[in-house]
Amino acid sequence: MNTAPATSTGGSRFEFLRQGLARLVALSLGMLGGMSLFGARRKNTVWQIDPLKCVQCERCATECVLSPSAVKCVQSYPICGYCQLCFGYFQPHAPQLNSAAENQLCPTGAIERLFVEEPYWEYNILEDSCIGCAKCVKACEMFGNASFYLQVRQDLCLNCNQCSIAIKCPAGAWDRVPADQPYKLKHKTAPGNTVGRLKKERPQWLA
């Protein structure tokens, strides 16, 4: 009803052409959409880190659009050695093996150390404090069982269409995963405490 009145004869011819073209486009759009729907009935995706590819470059802490980052360290308890001297927890050459700040490796004190039984200690990540810098992950990979690893916490992640960390990841460890399986947990991927990384070179400060 609100279309411009077709007054002249040229207008009506133009109108006819326009309508024909519109129907053609509508048809092709419908067909394209239908075909895509038919072929691509897939779940939504979210971003996740593959812990077996991660090289702990610390960029997850700085490149995320959120501050602090949506990437946090997680602890895989079945892999953990429950060591008294945890390399992910203590600074190298820590003066004492207690929870004093100068002994801790974590810059924000986001690891909790609890006594279980002699000689085992439990290590928990306090996610509110964790900034995803992966310092503990690196140390645990180098000297421990690699039970610490980074994961995107999906309740925090904004799920940007283009993850700003994924662009900067040097290891290509970031990928889109189905939203109903949003984590790449180490002890889930291979049961039996045998998941870990191949040995790496020792860091210079230990040599």
Partner: peptide
Amino acid sequence: QEQRFPAPEFKGGYTFP
């Protein structure tokens, strides 16, 4: 070589969180 420290054998009935 991968799993440097053996899995602990808890006596006190500890369950993994």
